[in-house]
Design a protein around this nucleic acid. Structure first.
Length: 564
RNA sequence: UGACCUAUGGUGUAGUGGUAGCACAGCAGAUUUUGGUUCUGUUAGCCUAGGUUCGAAUCCUGGUAGGUCAACCA
């Protein structure tokens, strides 16, 4: 028995991903004394998205699992694109996801050290100042099938290079006039090893160093050395940096500094979504969406406003796995993680989004009673609330059919249903306007079924939600659908813009009627409107106007049957 | 003169020479005061051709397919 339990536990244990294998091997062999230090290195030039969330969960998660730590390091080597606005949003999003960094650092903290190392490379004959134009450098780099050609300035003396580089730093040259390059091999099969640029001149103030510098290091020259300075043990990045690794290693080897190592994993892709920073920025700038935090955006702030929880996103990051093959995750997995989490925690409420008036003809006019309703059937400690019931109600228009198909369990002429937590009712009359549209239903209730059960034990097949007409409160409800109509938004014919893949019906705004207990809610509060979905109070909510976002619908088996 | 990375159900992901498993999605059923949840069952997979081996998803070789790289971006 005991051994069987043990066996079950072991076999249900989650299998390791390749990074966990590597780290465990490193710990086993005593590499870095068994120490694990990772880093999350965003460039502060945009908002974090769900793809970054995967990387954050990976880096912080790995450190947590192996008693290590994680640094937050802003990769701020390009002052023309970066801004403190982004620094702040990034920190907020990481904290919201539930992670704490060990140190808040910036690549710019290391500019002086990086500069000194550049002089060292010059002295070693491994770097030179190039006067070629941008165009010349590009041309002379060759192509993937053709070797590049050496710069005419490649063999300047150490002294001349040093003098020129110092004058670059001193601001004697204009933007683009000179660059510092590593002297490696213009014929290397890896393009990145063809004398890569180390420094370029940019006379632009930096968000942290101000006007102290007018030369800035390139990514390849900065990233590995920053890792090394911090003694990062496992520098984890996405697959497209794989080809950069020889360069990463080259600097560490030539500079003889701490040997951080880079590992690459496949970035996250989700269907019906775009993940590129450039495209997300475009959606914001062209006002296709309301902003970076538009609830349809895959940004972390967008998902937060939509009503996603940190737990659901972490669970998602866990479920998508970590490997090296390209992948496209079904959006349904993200929704599953959301529902799985919210089902356990969201308080249930009743709301009618497409109202149809119902008059209970055998219920006294003016009478009101309060009926107890369960807040969350998944969590008894969430308790109960009282919901007002009266003669005039609203139900969902979809919950009535005059000529129902077979297996339609909801309200229909002569068919009895349960009003959730209230009474069994039967429809006696259907009131229509001159055009034949149904405007109102007359029903009778069975007083003995108060609370939702009949003492005679008879069953009803359907239970529908409702609100009391005189007590209902109004709210703006924003119904979201996927932002793109195509699974792969980039799959468009030659010459057609990716934005043609946008789903033009991704937002529908309606007015809903809510049970009165929803009067005092605040932004980010989350509820399940029974039988409809999960809804989250939007930040546009004011004391005089409630706004809810539909985070996700509930699974709808009936819609599936009815659609067939 | 191309280099490198990757191929397991519809989508992801395990499997490390010995019965191809898990999750999502799908389908079927049970339970249910949410057509929700929960539970049970089920469909469906090793890119290809050789080779090594008693035995290959796994090792070797050759193909094929997809991806990354030619910003003074990161």
């Amino acid at each position: 028995m005991e051994s069987e339990n043990l066996k079950n536990e072991t076999s249900s244990e989650k299998t390791k991903n390749f990074l966990e294998e590597i780290i465990e091997e490193d710990i086993r062999t005593g590499k870095h004394g068994g120490r694990v230090l990772t880093r999350f290195p965003p460039e502060p030039n945009g908002y974090l998205h769900i793809g970054h969330a995967k990387s954050i969960c990976l880096n912080f998660g790995l450190a947590q699992k192996y008693n290590g730590k994680t640094n937050l390091r802003f990769d701020d080597t390009n002052p023309t694109k970066e801004d403190v606005e982004y620094v702040n949003s990034i920190k907020e999003d990481i904290e919201w996801l539930g992670f704490k960094w060990d140190n808040e650092l910036y690549s710019s903290d290391y500019f002086e050290q990086l500069y000194q190392w550049a002089e060292l490379l010059i002295q070693k004959g491994l770097a030179y100042v190039d006067d070629q134009t941008q165009e010349q450098i590009r041309t002379n780099r060759g192509t993937v099938n053709q070797a590049g050609t050496n710069s005419p300035y490649r063999n300047r003396s150490v002294d001349e290079n040093l003098d020129l580089f110092r004058r670059m730093r001193a601001g004697e040259f204009k933007d683009g006039e000179k660059v510092l390059r590593a002297k490696i091999d213009m014929g290397h099969p890896n393009m990145l090893m063809r004398d890569p640029l180390l420094y370029r001149i940019i006379h632009t103030d930096h968000h942290r160093t101000g006007d102290k510098w007018c030369i800035y290091p390139m990514y390849d020259y900065a990233h590995g050395q920053c890792d090394s300075i911090e003694q990062i043990t496992h520098s984890i990045c996405t697959l497209e940096f794989d080809v950069h690794r020889p360069l990463y290693d080259w600097f560490i080897e030539k500079l003889e500094i701490f040997p951080s190592h880079q590992y690459e994993f496949a970035r996250l892709n989700i269907n019906y979504t775009v993940m590129s920073k450039r495209k997300l920025l475009q959606l914001v700038q062209e006002k296709t969406v309301m902003g970076w935090d538009d609830p349809r955006m895959p940004t972390i702030c967008g998902l937060r406003r939509r009503g996603y929880t940190p737990e659901s996103i972490r669970s998602f990051a866990d479920k998508v796995g970590v490997a090296k093959r390209d992948n496209v995750i079904d959006l349904s997995l993200l929704e599953f993680c959301l529902r799985e989490d919210l089902n356990k925690r969201a308080l249930r409420r009743m709301a009618v989004l497409n109202p149809l008036k119902v008059v209970i003809t055998n219920y006294p006019e003016g009478q009101v009673e309060e009926l107890p309703a369960i807040n969350n059937p998944e969590n008894e400690s969430a308790g109960k609330r009282m919901v007002p019931f009266s003669r005039e109600l609203y139900i969902e228009r979809d919950d009535f059919m005059e000529n129902p198909p077979k297996k339609y369990f909801r309200l229909a002429p002569g068919q009895e249903v349960r009003l959730r937590y209230a009474y069994f009712v039967k429809c006696t009359d259907v009131i229509k306007d001159a055009n034949g549209n149904i405007t109102e239903l007359h029903c009778t209730l069975d007083p003995a079924s108060r609370g939702g059960n009949s003492p005679d034990g008879r069953k009803v097949q359907g239970t529908i939600h409702w609100v009391s007409a005189q007590h209902a409160i109004k709210a703006e409800i924003r119904l979201f659908d996927r932002l793109f109509a195509k699974a792969d938004p980039d799959d468009v014919p030659e010459g057609v813009d990716w934005k043609s893949s946008i789903n033009k019906e991704s937002l529908t705004v309606i007015e809903g009627l809510l049970e009165p207990s929803l009067r005092d809610v605040k932004p980010l509060d989350k509820f399940q409107f029974e039988r409809l979905g999960y809804f989250c109070v939007d930040s546009d909510t004011t004391p005089s106007k409630l706004v809810f976002n539909r985070t996700a619908t509930l699974k709808d088996t009936w819609a599936k049957i009815a659609g067939q």
